[in-house]
C-alpha cells in the first residue's frame, strides 16, 4: 500500500478536503500554539504529516509552525507531544472552531 501512496494519484490535497468543512475562526485567538524552539523533536516534526488537517508545517529555519484554522480539535498533536511538552493545546472558545455539519 505504501507503493500506492507514493504513486501520487493519491497525493491528496488536504486543503481541498477542508474546503468542504465549516469553521468559525476565532480570529486572533489561536487555540493551539507551538512553543518557541530551535530544533523540533521527532515527535513535533511528525505533526507535519500526522495532523489530519495539515495544520503543521516546517518553516525555512526548520521550525514547526501551526495555522489552526482547519483544526478538527482531534487532539492527535497533543497526544504525540505530551512527553516533550512542545505545544499548548486548548479547545477554542465555546462556539468557535470546527462546526461539524454531519460529524
Amino acid at each position: 500500500m505504501t507503493g500506492m501512496v507514493e504513486t501520487g494519484v493519491l497525493g491528496a490535497k488536504v486543503e481541498e478536503k477542508l474546503f468542504q468543512n465549516r469553521y468559525l475562526v476565532d480570529a486572533g485567538r489561536p487555540h493551539i500554539k507551538v512553543r518557541p524552539h530551535d530544533t523540533p523533536s521527532k515527535a513535533l516534526r511528525s505533526l507535519t504529516y500526522t495532523c489530519p488537517a495539515g495544520c503543521y508545517s516546517l518553516n525555512d529555519k526548520g521550525q514547526v509552525e501551526i495555522t489552526v484554522d482547519g483544526c478538527f480539535e482531534c487532539g492527535t498533536c497533543r497526544v504525540l507531544t505530551a512527553k516533550t511538552g512542545e505545544i499548548e493545546w486548548e479547545y477554542p472558545r465555546g462556539g468557535y472552531g470546527v462546526l461539524f455539519k454531519f460529524g
Partner: peptide, 21 residues
C-alpha cells in the same frame, strides 16, 4: 493507532484517499 501514524510517515488523508481508490 496514533503512534503508528507517527512512525509510519503516512498522512491520514493520503491513507484515506488510497482506501477510497
Amino acid at each position: 493507532i496514533v503512534s503508528d501514524f507517527a512512525e509510519n510517515g503516512t498522512t491520514p488523508y493520503g491513507l484515506l484517499e488510497a482506501f477510497k481508490n
